[in-house]
């Protein structure tokens, strides 16, 4: 039986990770292995430590105990203001291409990325001149530029209005089809998790532990009202105690 290298090497792996800030225990005994090109969503009550978990995955926070292994280049997409406001759209995306030394090649890839996010004509605009949805598209392009492997997303669409958020989900699925990545999406939007993820991790209140894993087998893109999505949303809601009163 042949097993590809890709399926053996886990791009991201946490082993018994705990993290405390002083006396505040944020993460407790989290073990997690994320497969190559897997899309994992992390949901949980607000303030439970979702974003902290993402910072541990990215390396911005070191765990108090436990080990983190990372294979490949990690990039994070933030909720808002992740772009450098003093750089234009082109200059921001170029940040993701800074190790492409050949000037012509960089220009070619830049044009390709602008195509991908359909922002031609906005090359020289600054972030504050764009709508929230456009800004997040630029951030996605920057994160997908070059040879990045792992995409971490910290509530990337939560600052957007509902319709823009729906559109951005479709946009993300399309972009990942063009440029497949291993993705970890932190969100409080249960609908978003159900529509996008292969696997949803439901966290407990602080200190966060993994309360439940829910796998969603249905292929992407998924309709919002498709059975697999509705069923997954129902299961997540039950896990976060929305359905049953305390």
């Amino acid at each position: 039986m042949s097993v590809s290298i890709a399926s053996q090497v886990k791009p991201l792996e946490l082993l018994d990770v705990s993290l405390s800030f002083g006396v505040v225990e944020v993460l407790r005994d989290i073990s997690l292995a994320i497969a190559h090109r897997e899309f994992v969503a992390v949901v949980g009550p607000s303030g439970c430590g979702k974003s902290t978990l993402l910072k541990v995955l990215s390396g911005d926070e070191a765990p108090s105990t436990g080990t983190v292994t990372r294979q490949g280049q990690v990039r994070t997409v933030y909720q808002q203001d992740g772009l450098f406001p003093w750089r234009t759209v082109t200059e921001n995306i170029s940040l993701g291409l800074r190790f492409v030394t050949d000037d012509q090649e960089r220009q070619r890839q830049l044009a390709e990325l602008l195509d991908l996010i359909r922002l031609h004509g906005f090359e020289n605009h600054y972030p504050h001149q764009l709508s929230g949805g456009m800004r997040q598209r630029v951030e996605l392009a920057r994160a997908l530029a070059g040879d990045s492997d792992i995409l971490l997303m910290d509530e990337p669409f939560s600052a957007l209005d509902y319709l823009t958020r729906l559109r951005m989900r479709g946009e993300l699925v399309r972009l990942l089809e063009e440029r497949p990545r291993t993705v970890v999406l932190v969100t409080h939007d249960i609908e978003e998790a159900s529509q996008l993820a292969d696997r949803v991790l439901v966290l407990t209140d602080r200190p966060a532990r993994i309360r439940r894993e829910i796998t969603i087998a249905s292929p992407r893109p998924r309709d919002l009202i498709e059975n697999a999505v509705v069923e997954a949303a129902r299961r997540i809601l039950a896990e976060v105690d929305i359905e049953s009163p305390r």
């Binding site: 990215s58 911005d60 990039r75 994070t76 933030y78 203001d81 992740g82 450098f84 940040l95 993701g96």
Partner: peptide
């Protein structure tokens, strides 16, 4: 904002580049 330095780190900006570019 700390997020600017997190971005700088994840895109591999070096110490001097963080000063001049962030």
């Amino acid at each position: 904002p700390a997020v600017h330095f997190q971005v700088a780190r994840s895109y591999g900006l070096r110490r001097f580049e963080k000063l001049t570019q962030v």
